[in-house]
C-alpha cells in the first residue's frame, strides 16, 4: 500500500480553492465578489453619509446665522451638493417663481412648497438609501450560499471516501476543510454586510428625520412670509 505511508494534504488558501469542486469554486468566487461589493458599498456610504452630515451642519449654521435667505440661495442655487441645500433650493425656487412671475399666485403657494419639499426629501433619502438593500441581501443570503458550497463539497468528499474505501482522517480531512472554506467565505461576506446595513440604515433614518424637521421649520417660516405679504 503505497498511499498508506502518509497522505499529505496541502491546506493553504490557494490549494483549498484550487482543489475544490467547480460548483464550490463558483460559490467561492461569487461570495468573494459579494464581499468586494459589500465593502465598496460600505466605503461609499460611509463617505457619503459623513459628507452629508458635515454639510448639513455647516448649512444649518449658515441658515440660522441670520444671513439673508436670498444671499444663501444665490450662493447655493448653482450647485446644491447635499440634501438639505437641495431642499432649501427647491423651496426657494418655488417661492421665487411665484413672486417673479407676471401673475402672483399666493393661493396654493403654501401647498406647492410643501409638495416640492416632500418630493425633494424622498429623492434625497432615496439617494442616501441606494444600495443599502444589497448589504441586507448579502448579509442574509451569503451564509446560506456558503453553506450550500459546504454541503456540496462534503457530499463530494464523502463520495471520494466511498471510492477510496478508506475512512482514515487523512482522507476525510482535506475535503471537509475545502468544503468548510466556502462557509468561511460566506460568513466573511455576511458579517460585515449585516453590521454595515444596520449602521447605515439607522444613519439614513436619522438624516431623513433631520431633513423632515428642517422642511417643517422652513415651510413654517415661508408660510409666515406668505401670510405677511398677502
Amino acid at each position: 500500500m503505497p498511499e498508506a505511508a502518509g497522505v499529505s494534504a496541502d491546506l493553504s488558501i490557494f490549494a483549498l480553492f484550487w482543489q475544490a469542486h467547480w460548483v464550490v469554486k463558483i460559490v467561492m468566487t461569487g461570495l468573494l465578489a459579494c464581499s468586494v461589493w459589500v465593502w465598496a458599498i460600505a466605503i461609499e456610504k460611509f463617505l457619503l453619509l459623513q459628507r452629508t452630515r458635515t454639510a448639513m451642519n455647516r448649512f444649518e449654521q449658515a441658515f440660522w446665522s441670520g444671513q439673508s435667505l436670498e444671499e444663501l440661495y444665490r450662493s447655493l442655487s448653482s450647485r446644491p451638493n447635499h440634501s438639505m441645500a437641495a431642499l432649501f433650493v427647491a423651496a426657494m425656487r418655488e417661492w421665487k417663481r411665484s413672486f417673479e412671475g407676471s401673475t402672483r399666485s399666493f393661493a396654493g403657494l403654501q401647498m406647492r412648497i410643501e409638495k416640492v419639499m416632500d418630493v425633494t426629501i424622498s429623492r434625497e433619502v432615496e439617494r442616501l438609501e441606494r444600495r443599502l438593500l444589497v448589504l441586507a441581501t448579502v448579509g442574509s443570503a451569503s451564509p446560506f450560499v456558503g453553506l450550500f458550497g459546504t454541503v456540496w463539497g462534503i457530499m463530494n468528499s464523502f463520495q471520494s471516501i466511498a471510492a477510496s474505501k478508506n475512512t482514515s482522517l487523512a482522507v476525510v480531512a482535506p475535503g471537509i476543510a475545502e468544503a468548510l472554506f466556502a462557509t468561511a467565505i460566506g460568513l466573511v461576506a455576511a458579517i460585515p454586510a449585516t453590521i454595515f446595513y444596520n449602521k447605515f440604515s439607522s444613519e439614513v433614518n436619522k438624516q431623513a428625520s433631520r431633513l423632515e424637521g428642517f422642511a417643517d421649520e422652513f415651510s413654517a417660516i415661508l408660510s409666515r412670509q406668505i401670510d405677511e405679504r398677502a
Binding site: A5, V7, S8, A9, S12, N166, A170, A173
Partner: peptide
Amino acid sequence: FVVKPLEANTT
C-alpha cells in the same frame, strides 16, 4: 496561512 501539510500516518 501556510498550514503544515497534514502528515497523517494510517494507523
